[in-house]
Design a protein around this nucleic acid. Structure first.
Lengths: 137, 137
DNA sequence: ATATGGCCTCCACCCACTGGAAGGTCAAGC
DNA sequence: GCTTGACCTTCCAGTGGGTGGAGGCCATAT
């Protein structure tokens, strides 16, 4: 396990923040290319692999899907990319986030209002259950 | 297929808004009790079953998990329930929604700011990719 | 010599469905 | 009476993004 840059999957995991199991999963999904193998069949990683893993980690934290990350990685690796293409991906994702936030907020407000109207005591009467059982148009 | 109230799964689906496949799935998961069967092995539903399905549908629309719905259904069926218990479930879910909304909003703002700083032209320079590749502490 | 811990593969499971294949049932139309 | 088509039945597989565990090899310290 020598070599200045060489790392096992566990070290790459610690260094990138992506769990070892997840790294294998990404490899299987084709998100990262299959790692080189040592003589003992252990996967070997270098700084550039770890860089890619960190990129993926950050993109996941920002809510991009693996499919979107695949596209982002392609742009990342392409020196002749147009920032326009990256921006389009990002803005599409912002739209999706706005949509989700709006929906969750709507649900949240509905439910908070129902809870506000519920006495929350020992009696069975409950506007929340009454809402749930009400037939909708 | 006689009987004033009797319905097939397709009619129950149309009447409740829960797809037939999903009704079978709920039965398998034990969320609803196994439907009666006709001589031809078709599932039979009545208004009360449809009412339960509508309840589930509405609760799903409000973002409750099947596990939470299981508890809500138990409270719904229990005439001696305390509205306190329903309210507690609802408020816990509101908290969870608030948490999710806050996280998505944080992500959304981060990404929108990165996109704002990106020229979005034909050149490769891109603050979004620069952010993604940046090592984190 | 063995105990620990890391690595390997493979399979199963999570959530909440959804799609599809293969086959049974029923009413209507010719 | 036979076909057609719309239902219904079961079972199996896949989605997304992993996580957990079994069973076994490898490396190092005691």
């Amino acid at each position: 396990m020598k070599g200045k840059e060489g790392m096992t999957i566990g070290q790459a995991a610690a260094s990138s923040g992506v769990p070892a199991k997840t790294i294998r999963f990404y490899e299987e999904r084709g998100l990262v290319k299959p790692a080189e193998r040592l003589a003992n069949r252990y996967r070997a990683y270098d700084e550039s692999n770890v860089q890619t893993l960190r990129f993926i980690r950050r993109a996941r934290d920002l809510g991009f899907s693996l499919q979107e990350i695949d596209k982002l990685l392609a742009l990342y690796r392409n020196r002749r990319r147009a920032s326009e293409d990256v921006k389009r991906l990002a803005l599409a994702h912002v739209c999706e986030l706005d949509r989700k936030i709006a929906e969750l907020t709507r649900i949240r407000d509905t439910l908070a209002e129902l809870a506000r109207r519920c006495h929350g005591d020992q009696r069975p009467e409950c506007p929340i259950l009454e809402d749930l059982e009400r037939p909708r148009p």
